[in-house]
Design a protein around this nucleic acid. Structure first.
Lengths: 129, 129
DNA sequence: TTTGACCTTCCACTGTACTGGAAGGTTCAT
DNA sequence: ATGAACCTTCCAGTACAGTGGAAGGTCAAA
């Protein structure tokens, strides 16, 4: 399979696939006599995995780790479980932070409801922030 | 006030203050005979405003808009209110997305609890993702 | 006078995940 | 034979908010 067909099959672009190879996410593809990359069907699964990993909020670097462990013939299960656990803790922290921020902004927004107040003092930038 | 003193007073670095000036957030500072930047007390308020704006999740570009409106002698109130409203909508969307993601990852993590299953098939990267 | 702290500009780099474009080679249909 | 569609490499740039470092100028104290 040529790179354009793989891109089509996985819903991405040839640019991105070359970028994944260069970044060590995909193993270097075999080449045809012409120099064109020649992918096996495995590649479709790997690119699909990259997309699912991204949807799970993993970085390309983390996805690359899993892919390389798998590439060495090992099962990456415990590594994956650790990554997911870490991601879960990050998400909880991030959500908590955003909820606090939402409260803050909501209050600022409500305060800014009064139009163009005369109570602005010249030496402050904005009464509301 | 020299740049180092302003940095000290506002809890930032001289690098960052020059970066703010270059980015159009702070107006170009007056210069002493030596060429050193010479800040007035206003600058402390502006840098404080930048920090509060960042804490409210505004980008430097948005903060810069407010600062420049204020710099033209106008009250940026309605603009600020619009920005805060937009930010609020973004936050709500972002929080909703993260909650969905948290659910997904939580399930994947729970599924990955069984250690090193024999149910992995050779042609998939990872049973769990 | 010389040391050290401070300041200046300029250029390049960080991390993340790509994207754009130039210059050239290959394959296939007409 | 020629044009379109595809492929190759390499270089450079995007957004964001800075950070690092080099080479040199300024100022106060010892």
């Amino acid at each position: 399979m040529r790179i354009g067909q793989l891109a089509e099959a996985t819903g991405t672009t040839t640019k991105t696939l070359r970028f994944y190879e260069e970044s060590g996410l995909l193993p270097p593809a075999e080449r045809m006599a012409s120099g064109y990359r020649d992918y096996t069907d495995d590649a479709v699964g790997m690119v699909g995995f990259i997309h699912r990993g991204q949807a799970a909020g993993l970085t390309l670097a983390q996805i690359g780790q899993i892919l390389r462990i798998r590439g060495h013939g090992q099962a990456p299960c415990s590594h994956v479980r650790n990554l997911l656990g870490g991601r879960l803790r990050e998400l909880d922290a991030q959500i908590a932070e955003l909820l606090v921020l939402r409260e803050t902004i909501s209050q600022l927004h409500a305060q800014a409801a009064e139009p163009e107040p005369d109570t602005c003092t010249a030496n402050e930038v904005c009464r509301y922030i």
